[in-house]
Design a protein around this nucleic acid. Structure first.
Length: 274
DNA sequence: CGGGCGGCCTGGAGGC
DNA sequence: TGCCTCCAGGCCGCCC
């Protein structure tokens, strides 16, 4: 489900709702996620401690606690983290609930179980194995044309797959890779090393603009994405190509195609993406 | 090292 | 109604 914009939208919503609240109990109802949920570790870091802030790195949500620990949460494909009244009945695929002093509970559901929740010492966040080796944040100045060019020279891989490589740039998943390439007018199949530097510079701007706009529009809700209060996003109406096989390209009117690259659906316009 | 692929999971949609 | 296949926003590890 979530790429960078969705996680950032979630972060912003929780940032308004959670800081200052205290975790009174942790319930693990299903420990089966990408890594088994460790109740003892969660409880030790959380119970009796307050939430101090919400951060994000790549597609990981970071929940900072006054215990000196940070919760690292990844939503995988189908994860949802929502704040509900404490008496809300549990639903299928609920994994973890944090009962808060305010009478609410923060609940993590994830039917496909590709998600993750774990505890990291805040002072050691940078060295955490989940985060180490990640490339630059796409919305930071550090991600610039020179950075992308350096990672593309001499590479035979399709440019779309390079964009989705988290050591190149983080947070760009299957939807936004297709969208950014359409904006930049670049064929997703083109070998990364054969995209001119000038056009890679355009691509960097397209990525930044696409992601920033998606955050402003509340993320993309194709099926079930929602922020911490359950609100859907609406960037899906701004999608130019993703999920629009057979429709007209909004820029040139040609038919949008769907192909498979790296086992993922890829949408593009053969006519205005070269 | 780069590159390609299978695997991990469940649920929803659509065809028959 | 049921059964089958395909498809889905991510990521990891194995192979050549």
């Amino acid at each position: 489900m979530p790429e960078l914009p969705e996680v950032e939208v979630l972060r912003r919503s929780l940032e308004r709702l959670l800081p200052g609240d205290r975790i009174e109990a942790v319930v693990v109802s299903d420990k089966r996620l990408r890594e088994p949920v460790d109740l003892r570790e969660l409880a030790r870091a959380c119970v009796g401690h307050s939430i101090v802030g919400l951060g994000r790195r790549a597609k990981y949500l970071l929940v900072g606690l006054d215990s000196g620990s940070t919760l690292l949460v990844h939503l995988g494909m189908s994860g949802r983290l929502t704040l509900v009244p404490v008496e809300t009945p549990s639903e299928p695929h609920e994994h973890v609930s944090f009962l808060l002093a305010s009478g609410r509970r923060l609940r993590l559901r994830d039917p496909r179980r590709f998600g993750l929740i774990t505890v990291v010492e805040t002072s050691e966040l940078e060295q955490d194995p989940h985060l180490v080796g990640l490339g630059p944040e796409p919305l930071d100045d550090e991600f610039d044309p020179a950075a992308l060019v350096a990672r593309c020279v001499g590479r035979a891989r399709a440019i779309k797959l390079v964009l989705m490589d988290p050591t190149v740039v983080v947070g760009v998943g299957n939807i936004y890779a297709s969208e950014a390439l359409h904006r930049a007018g670049i064929d997703p199949r083109r070998a990364a090393g054969r995209v001119a530097p000038r056009r890679l510079a355009v691509l960097v701007q397209a990525i930044k603009q696409t992601l920033a706009q998606a955050v402003e529009e509340g993320g993309t809700t194709l099926n079930d994405f929602a922020d911490g209060e359950g609100n859907a996003g609406y960037f899906q109406v701004s999608l130019a190509v993703y999920g629009r096989e057979g429709e007209d390209c909004p820029r040139c009117g040609e038919v949008i195609r769907r192909i498979v690259l790296g086992q993922r659906s890829t949408f593009f316009c053969d006519s205005c993406q070269r």
